[in-house]
Simulated assay, not measured.
Amino acid sequence: MPRLVLASQSPARLATLKSAGVTPEVVVSGVDEDKVLADATERFGELDPADAVLVLAQAKAEEVASQLEDARDNADVVVVGCDSMLEFDGVVVGKPADAEVARERWRSMRGRKGVLHSGHWVVDLRDDDAGGTGGTLGSTSSTTVWFADIDDDEIDAYIATGEPLHVAGAFTIDGLGGPYIERIEGDHHGVVGLSLPLLRELLSELGVPWRSLRTS
């Protein structure tokens, strides 16, 4: 059975996989995101948000794959890396620097919509005997999110929980921010940070059926 390694420290991504019956190993990358994006921009020109998250997901997956390549027990490993950004008014919005930034962000987002982009990249480290392809590929999930038109008191109460400071776009859909998301167009799991349907498709292209990863 293939072993999935998640190159992310995100509790939400881990919980998403576990809820689908897959319990991955977690190996966090040491990627310098600013440098990766700067290098990619120098090579390819200005990146749109959908490409930026894909570049970062690839860097994270390949950095962890390089960590594991010399390990003696990696013969059946497949690595997945992810990254997420909110595109709002044509601008990329990551994690807010502090509570005031998160507050101002929510004041601008309320009653409006943005697009949450989540990049996914998969690296096949499996040996030939385990069906390995040596493949590496990825894609981006993009979901439109409509934010509720909440008042300042509601924003302040949400910021006070601390949750918005730790997530891309300063919101969650699967946590305390859920009540403030009116609707979405696209994949719910992509907003959480890992699109299960997209990951299934990428793994299928590498010859890894989703059912082979289920541990429950």
Rank of each mutant, 00 (worst) to 15 (best):
L68C: 09
P96H: 05
A168D: 05
D152L: 14
L47C: 13
S66E: 15
Y180A: 04
D73I: 05
A160W: 13
K113D: 12
F147I: 06
W106H: 12
R107G: 15
F147H: 05
A99F: 11
P179Y: 08
R105C: 11
A57F: 09
L116I: 12
V167F: 05
A52N: 11
V77N: 05
T161V: 11
D153G: 14
V145L: 08
H188L: 13
K95D: 08
I184F: 04
T161K: 13
I173Q: 05
G175H: 07
V115C: 06
T144F: 06
A99C: 13
A71P: 01
E104A: 08
W121N: 02
H120F: 09
G134V: 02
A130Y: 08
V80Q: 00
C82E: 02
D129N: 09
T144C: 07
A97G: 07
T172Q: 04
A157W: 06
G119E: 06
G132R: 01
G90Y: 13
K113E: 15
A160H: 13
R105T: 13
D152A: 14
G190Y: 01
L116T: 03
E63R: 12
R126K: 09
R183D: 13
V78T: 00
N74M: 05
R183M: 09
G132N: 02
I173Y: 05
R105Q: 15
A65I: 06
I173V: 15
S66R: 15
T144M: 12
W121A: 03
D152E: 15
G177I: 03
L176F: 11
G186I: 02
V78W: 03
V91D: 11
L176Q: 14
E185M: 01
T133Y: 00
A157K: 11
